[in-house]
Design a protein around this nucleic acid. Structure first.
Lengths: 347, 347
DNA sequence: CTGAAAGCGCTTACAG
DNA sequence: CTGAAAGCGCTTACAG
């Protein structure tokens, strides 16, 4: 704490003009120096030093609003997720903020609650706020808005989900093959009666996971029965979802269950705890999640990995590349333990 | 992948001047109308309607950067928490965003990781970004920075913690009495050997909780022994903390344990799960948390309530009151089940 | 009732 | 090498 110098006098905001006046130069000279363009503007090293000294003496802090208006860049990103209080999204938010900070960007966030009107409104407001780009975990209803952003040439990167029909850069795990891996794992271990708990949302990745579940069973000659699937309503209260899962598990002769998303998994684990069913002795459990996220860390359960750190990192990279106007390539970045990280981007 | 046909012309952003030109009036007239000051500026209803129509026809979106520069208000808040990926803070973040949105504010966030330098840096950047005010869950090292903000007359509201020496508005539960309630609860139920797991952080609320634990025991004539306390290091990796808790619980003859924060509680529950200790049959457990936050929802554990919704709501109110320049009063808002919500603010 | 002008704090050509 | 001027898109007195 020794380095910290407390302010004694109440500071009037010091501007570039104040510095210029004190240094006896023009504001533009100060601007050039402070932006590291002294050399470029052929300002003498001596003068530059003097200006820098005065600026730091006066504790000059640039008004970024003015910079933004002038340059047209805010260095602010808009992060739109379904529910920032969910561990998965919260972790995403954390890493994105860190990554953004590293390159001088700030992050505005919001939760859509899977509500179309809210999502549209937030995008509109973020646009008014002149965010430089969007990081979004979109829900089905947002497709037209994403499409609009693309038309407006706004930099966008989708995370965790995507729209096959839209040519938007996106970062997500290979949901189909990840789910297949998990199913193969269960089937090889001898489980046959595998339930599937999902959410009634029209999202590609959910379809893919369910398809993987069905096909895996089919290939093992144990066709999926409708009573093996529980479809929860997105807007149910947690306790209701848990009760439904409890009823589902109690009424079905399952030896394993596949929870299709991480938060269903959280409910699922609660349900099993309340039923006092031990994992995996009495019931094998599979769920999508980041293996570092703590909430789901439960010994015995199998996780289809959604490496949130990598997703966030890659998404930021794709966004930055758009800022730079660099061309992007369709590229598969990395193959992970259980899920695969897929990156697709327009050329 | 090319379902999407790229636009040929790039949409130029429409400004107030474009509308003015189209309507054949001055930009200032458009501004007045669009800001609902038509009446005030005695602009005819007819003209106002025509301008509004043109604006919506052109899909006018005000450039908020320009508004901010001119008015000196960004309508952006800076939210600074310890770790946005922690459920408690994430939930706080969610509710704050909702509350802020309701009054037309946006939220920039960051995590400090209990790192002083990082905290100072973020405050500086938020200031450059001209945030209108700060919502902070401060850590000990941030006191001087908070003090500076107060000196600069920046609106600030502290949440969940506070500094007794600083006259900053803050919203938090009554940690001492909340912890006392929990201890009384345990002691009345006959538990005597009650452990305390805390974190090595110099925070008022942690001292208060610990003090409550000690005094409660003392009053029951069972003085606290040093071996009943486990002090975890903040920067330990989760798995290490869990191991320490496991060792602590295994080596001590406890019949109950008090986890001093919600995330220690999360580790604690994991530890107990791994040790296959059932709650509360084999060990009674008390922890601070919001009772709605799901992570800790574990049957049998006792929660000292930190009503995150109310904390967030009240904090926003206090901040808004500062924006309005209204005087604030020291006021106790509400008494809750187990913790009490305390609001103190400068006059 | 309405418009011209100034200015928020910067950056960026451009002139000397 | 350095400064004067224009302008980003708004709002706010103020003049008519």
């Amino acid at each position: 704490m020794a380095f910290y110098k407390p302010l004694t006098r109440v500071t009037m905001k010091v501007t570039i003009r104040d510095i210029a006046r004190k240094a006896g130069v023009a504001p533009s000279t100060v601007s050039a120096v402070l932006n590291g363009k002294a050399k470029e503007s052929r300002i003498s090293e001596q003068l530059a030093d003097r200006i820098r000294l005065i600026a730091s003496d006066m504790d000059y802090q640039p008004n970024y609003t003015a910079v933004s208006l002038r340059t047209g860049k805010t260095r602010v990103l808009g992060l739109i997720v379904e529910d920032i209080s969910n561990v998965f999204f919260a972790t995403l938010a954390k890493i994105i903020e860190e990554e953004a900070d590293r390159v001088g960007y700030k992050v505005l966030y919001c939760s859509t609650e899977n509500n179309e009107a809210k999502a549209r409104e937030r995008i509109r407001i973020f646009n008014q706020r002149q965010v430089d780009g969007f990081l979004i975990t979109p829900t089905a209803g947002m497709r037209p808005f994403i499409s609009d952003l693309l038309k407006q040439q706004k930099p966008v990167v989708l995370m965790d989900r995507y729209f096959p029909e839209l040519d938007a850069p996106h970062v997500l795990v290979d949901n189909y093959n990840g789910a297949r891996l998990a199913m193969d794992h269960l089937l090889e271990k001898g489980y046959r009666n595998i339930g599937f708990v999902t959410i009634s949302l029209d999202q590609v990745q959910m379809h893919q996971r369910r398809q993987a579940w069905e096909r895996s069973l089919a290939e093992f000659g144990v066709p999926a029965a409708p009573h093996q699937v529980l479809e929860l309503c997105y807007h149910s209260r947690p306790q209701d979802s848990i009760e439904q899962i409890k009823a589902f598990i109690s009424s079905t002769q399952l030896d394993a269950v596949f929870f299709a998303t991480n938060y269903i998994g959280v409910y699922g684990l609660q349900a099993l705890k309340q039923l006092e069913i031990s994992i995996p002795q009495q019931l094998a459990v599979v769920c999508f999640d980041d293996h570092d996220i703590f909430g789901l860390f439960s010994p015995g359960i199998t996780i289809v990995e959604q490496p949130v750190q990598q997703i966030a990192h890659t998404a930021m990279q794709l966004l930055m590349r758009q800022f730079e106007g660099s061309p992007m390539m369709i590229k598969e970045l990395q193959v992970l333990k259980s899920g695969r990280l897929i990156v697709r981007a327009s050329t």
